[in-house]
Design a binder for these strands. Structure first.
Length: 272
DNA sequence: ACTATGCCCTGGGTGC
DNA sequence: TGCACCCAGGGCATAG
């Protein structure tokens, strides 16, 4: 699942290759029409064609390509998407769209489950209306987090998945952050005191930064901007490690369900 | 305003 | 080998 570290890894890899280049052609494949949110597929292809990419930014899990006509091409990889730059060779099994750049480089959008989205908008914020500060930005402060936790009575895990609260955090890093902060993901958000909120904020940043060093986490489908895998999986503490011993205390990692999401934690290190 | 639920989508895994 | 079923989950729509 591409979350902040995976999307940022992709951005860093493909930005040097596509920024400054002009899009020569775009093809959204049959069956992947839902990819195009703001336009009909052929209109979106037409809209992108001939545009130069002036910058490639990221906010939370969104990639934002700034175009030379002032608009923005906003890409979300959702569950199984990846944006891969590759020399021309045989297409990936789950390729849903393809761009050719003016220097011959081909950018492939692969997405097994077809949940990914493309917007072309005047203002990138129009494509991500419910998104708050990026979790690795200076705007993601302890006081911001405290404010949002204080008015929510749902489990902490649910709040951490809310992109309005911490853009870029998804299921993997919500679990990892709770583990690093030694907080039970089931605790009601408003029950967290100031000290633990501060610890949690640091743990979120730590979890994301550690993964970024490894190029993100690949469990099954995620591939980075060059078609490779992230290797943070080998450094994950709890996510999908249920049944295995905790790195710290040796207790068996448990898996429960919170807000419809698989949630992993150490019952001893994260008692409360 | 907050909370809960269902939907989208398809390969991989399991059980019979 | 085949078939039915369940699971994974980000973000949105909808209802309460």
């Amino acid at each position: 699942m591409p979350e902040l570290p995976e999307v940022e890894t992709t951005r860093r890899q493909i930005a040097p290759i596509i920024v400054g280049r002009t899009i020569k052609s775009v093809k959204i494949h049959k069956g992947a029409e839902r990819l195009a949110v703001t336009h009909a597929p052929h209109e979106l292809e037409f809209t992108l064609t001939g545009r130069r990419i002036d910058a490639l930014d990221r906010h939370g899990k969104y990639l934002i390509a700034h175009l030379d006509d002032g608009r923005a091409w906003v890409v979300h990889l959702r569950m199984t998407g990846s944006l891969v730059v590759a020399a021309v060779d045989k297409p990936h099994r789950f390729e849903r769209a393809q761009l050719s750049m003016d220097d011959g480089v081909v950018v492939r959008f692969n997405d097994l489950r077809k949940f990914g989205t493309w917007h072309v908008v005047e203002d990138p914020r129009d494509a991500m209306p419910n998104v708050g500060p990026d979790a690795l930005s200076d705007d993601f402060t302890v006081s911001w987090l405290r404010e949002h936790l204080a008015r929510r009575s749902v489990p902490l895990k649910s709040v951490l998945l809310d992109q309005k609260v911490a853009a870029g955090v998804g299921n993997i890093y919500a679990d990892e952050a709770c583990y690093i902060a030694r907080i039970n993901p089931r605790i009601k958000a408003h029950e967290l005191g100031p000290r633990r909120v501060a610890r949690l904020r640091d743990a979120i940043v730590t979890a994301l930064q550690r993964s970024l060093v490894d190029g993100g986490t690949t469990f099954s489908n995620y591939m980075d901007g060059l078609g490779g895998a992230g290797f943070h999986k080998t450094h994950v503490h709890v996510f999908r490690r249920d049944g295995e011993p905790c790195d710290h205390c040796g207790s068996i990692i448990r898996k429960i369900r919170i807000a419809g999401r698989g949630t992993h934690f150490c019952p001893r290190c994260q008692k409360h």
